[in-house]
Amino acid sequence: MLKVENINMSYGDLQVLWDVSFEVNEGEIVVLVGANGAGKSSILKTISGLQKVSSGKIKFDNDDLTIIDPAEIIKKGVVHVPEARRLFNEMTVEENLIMGSLHGEAKEKRNETIKKCYDLFPRLKERQKQAAGTLSGGEQQMVAVARGLMSLPKLLMLDEPSLGLAPVLVQDIFDIIKGIRQQGITVLLVEQNVQTTLKFCDRAYVLENGKITLEGTGKDLLNNEHVREAYLGI
């Protein structure tokens, strides 16, 4: 479904991604794990077109995302839920959701999808008229995920959804991600929360200094000597 082929990317003179290749198959939950500054978020930004690659291709179905205008990418069925949520803080929860459904089919089914999102996150229904900036961190994360779902994506990319959330909520968010996959949406997840994510993902890639150093199923990586030492501290 998504095939990233040998991408290199730099911020100015500083190269942050080195020959990164990986793929995500339909229906999978794939995780990119790694330390701060390993290039996880940068990979998502290149997929959603916010950063241009210096070489390499990103194929999604039959399109090459590297040559598409960033504002068009959501129309192809790829949506990026950015790090730290980045909601439209002064708009209401409902308006934030509407912003996810500006195009095509998503726009036609807007009301229907909003209802589904409220079923998934009943808290948001209570807060629908409240400005998004006034919500708690966990609620804001729900809005961010729901806003992504509003575009009826084929591939949902989540950048550190557990960031800054209480441990109880972290588990909730991961349960929700599993639920999203059951609806047939493929998930590409970026996480620092290595142990939890490796447990429930299908496959994972380990990123170090802008290079992919390991790949495998979640279970394999959990048992991997290097991963245990470097990320799990065992």
Binding site: S48, G49, L50, D69, P70, A71, E72, I73, I74, K75, V79, H80, P82, R86, L87, F88, N89, E90, M91, M99, G100, L102, H103, R147, S151
Partner: peptide
């Protein structure tokens, strides 16, 4: 309004 509040997110939502 979305562009005024967060250009980055607006782009992700498909707003040029």
């Amino acid at each position: 309004r979305a562009t005024a509040q967060d250009k980055f997110s607006a782009t992700l939502m498909g707003i040029s």
